[in-house]
Design a protein around this nucleic acid. Structure first.
Lengths: 218, 218
DNA sequence: GTCTATAAGCGGATAGAC
DNA sequence: GTCTATCCGCTTATAGAC
């Protein structure tokens, strides 16, 4: 993966979409997410992804011309899911309600899409070679808007004074941790978020601690 | 890297250590940390690590017979550094002081050893193929002891009732986030922990929020 | 669209001189 | 201990039949 290629935008659709083509593409993307999340870009092999998608390697490469194209497509789709909960953070709600809801949504994402969370995390940890462009535009814009929301809450005395970026980082960190470090958590507790009681315990701990931490008059 | 090989313990010293041998080994480990953290195990190339260590690939392979031996050695050394702050968490201190100190120490680690943090994180995210053994013994024992410390604080009414594991996960998550997601944080804020003011801002936000969240009577 | 076969090149590891 | 040269397996990607 050359550094220039890594910055290139996702190529446009390569061909007219047929029904079977759409279905195959979707199966490939699902399989690719799973394998890339487990082994990283370099560690994943195309024939492994093809097998997981139930087709031959040559056929997979008919849909995505290169491994890198495929990686890029999976990541783009992942980022879009990743952004959704933050988009929903509602400036007009009560801060406690809005933040509590956001924590629950992010934790739900960690439960339902742990592989997507890990894939995204690995991409960022390696310096976001593919996503840096999109992070600097789409994510930065969205975060800026939410920072203003938080600032307004603080000005109105509805939230204790916290630097908004750091609050957002705390929310991301605490909720994503359960997906990204699931192996460690399973080793230490024997459980993960797929266990309903454990999910509720985690949600409760995060909501209680952070909301008590940032809401005025505890 | 076969799955059985991944679980094998670190091999014993391969030869008598000479002064120059020690120095080389240390330079190799530093270089390997940097390259593995940036590209992962599969993405890193031995000749790249050798170049970063200022020697030939063949010479590096004289010190570490395989790429996997080298990876294992780097990880083991990393885990040891990673555990240190938790070992220091002092049951006899005031909980607020002890936790505040722990947050500061972990954040300091994120500032000084961001690559080690990311390497460790990537290993865990991929299911801890190499470290799972050590996590289940060394880490689990240590965490168990600290869980009891936290439980005692709660029983004594010096800490609000929080499930201790989740508190520990929150502390890990919030502090490690600044190393592991540094690329994202730099994109959004233009800064990282190497900026003293930013470090202090982050420390302050985490300490204030979490301590307010878990200490009794605000 | 899907397959088999193969080209092409990368990268880990070794041989053997010095 | 360090080097140069080389081997060889593995993996991406293509060619071309069906």
């Amino acid at each position: 993966m050359s550094s220039t290629a890594r910055l290139a935008p996702v190529p446009p659709a390569r061909r007219l979409k047929t029904r079977i083509g759409e279905a195959n593409e979707s199966r490939i993307l699902d399989a690719a997410l799973s394998v890339f999340a487990r082994l990283g870009f370099a560690g994943a092999r195309v024939d492994q992804i093809a097998e997981a998608a139930g087709m031959s390697k040559a056929n997979l490469l008919y849909y995505f011309r290169t491994k890198e194209d495929l990686y890029r497509a999976v990541l783009t789709r992942t980022l879009d899911m990743w952004l959704e909960p933050l988009r929903e953070l509602d400036a007009d709600s009560d801060p406690g309600t809005a933040l509590g809801h956001y924590i629950a949504r992010k934790l739900e994402y960690s439960r339902l899409q742990p592989e997507a969370s890990r894939l995204f995390a690995m991409e960022i940890m390696q310096g976001a070679p593919v996503l840096s462009c999109v992070l600097a535009t789409d994510l930065a814009d969205l975060v800026e808007r939410k920072v203003r929301t938080i600032e307004r809450w603080i000005e109105d005395g509805r939230l204790a004074p916290v630097e908004p970026h750091h609050l957002i980082f705390m929310l991301w960190a605490t909720t994503q941790h359960y997906a990204d470090f699931a192996a460690q958590i399973r080793t230490l507790t024997g459980k993960d978020l797929s266990d309903d009681a454990f999910f509720e315990e985690a949600r409760q701990a995060i909501v209680t601690t952070i909301l008590k931490g940032v809401l005025p008059r505890g």
